[in-house]
């Protein structure tokens, strides 16, 4: 395999990344004859023969095991909550996966537990071949989110917002005095005092807009320090 792209290069759809008999398709690429080409606008990360593309933009695609933030949009079918998870496919939460405890919907009704417009921090349990998505709430840390503000962000910046070992998000939470949940599906939920939420939102917006730049952590640190002095 001959690597044609350079480390850090911005790739457009159609740009050749590598050529040869032994090229393999990776995420964000396709094979065109004997060339591996990019299919999305992305940044190339190349370590020897190890090639990875970092997408610049793009809608969220659901995978099993993803932690997501969703909004209950329908509670009309027996035993099912329908959840908008900020992507092309609606997700379903079955009542048996909605809690570790027994939920007595016969007695209290479905909306007693989750109702229209409510926000949940949940996990994708299964994605079928026809893109049917099942959620679960049966895990520690998964919960209904009350009294906060939602903000959308570019799902491709999820890792940058979290930071290495959650360092970035922990720093933002600590310095702004907020509680933040970040969904892999490009939604963040922030609670706290209004001014603190506003600050946290502004910081996440900057990471969202400039997440592909080196030295971002320093910039965010400075921004949060400035906020402290005031």
């Amino acid at each position: 395999m001959k690597v044609l792209a350079k480390e850090g290069q911005i790739l457009c759809p159609g740009d050749a990344i590598a050529s040869g008999e032994d090229i393999k398709e990776i995420e964000g690429t396709y094979i065109n004859g004997n060339e591996l080409c990019a299919s999305i606008v992305s940044k190339a990360s190349i370590k020897g023969d190890n090639i990875r593309l970092i997408a610049m933009k793009g809608a969220y695609l659901p995978y099993e095991g993803d932690y997501i933030i969703g909004k209950i949009i329908d509670v009309n079918a027996p035993n099912w909550y329908f959840v908008d998870i900020n992507c092309a496919y609606e997700a379903g939460l079955n009542i048996r996966d909605a809690s570790n405890q027994y939920l007595d919907t016969e007695r209290y009704g479905m909306t007693h537990y989750f109702s229209y417009g409510e926000v949940i921090f949940s996990r994708i349990q299964k994605v079928s071949d026809t893109m049917r998505i099942d959620l679960t709430m049966k895990e520690n840390g998964l919960m209904k989110l009350n009294g906060g503000v939602l903000m959308p962000f570019n799902p491709n910046k999820f890792a940058r917002i979290l930071g290495k070992d959650d360092s970035m998000i922990n720093m933002i939470q600590e310095k702004t005095n907020t509680k933040i949940f970040v969904g892999m599906n490009g939604l963040a939920w922030i609670s706290g005092k209004a001014l603190d939420i506003k600050k946290a939102k502004e910081v996440i917006e900057i990471i969202d807009a400039e997440g592909h730049i080196e030295g971002l952590t320093k910039k965010i640190e400075d921004m949060l320090k400035k906020g402290e002095k005031k």
């Binding site: 457009c12 396709y30 299919s39 999305i40 606008v41």
Partner: peptide, 11 residues
């Protein structure tokens, strides 16, 4: 379409 991150063969 490219700016939206849709997977494409080429511009």
């Amino acid at each position: 379409l490219a700016d939206a991150g849709i997977e494409m063969r080429d511009l």
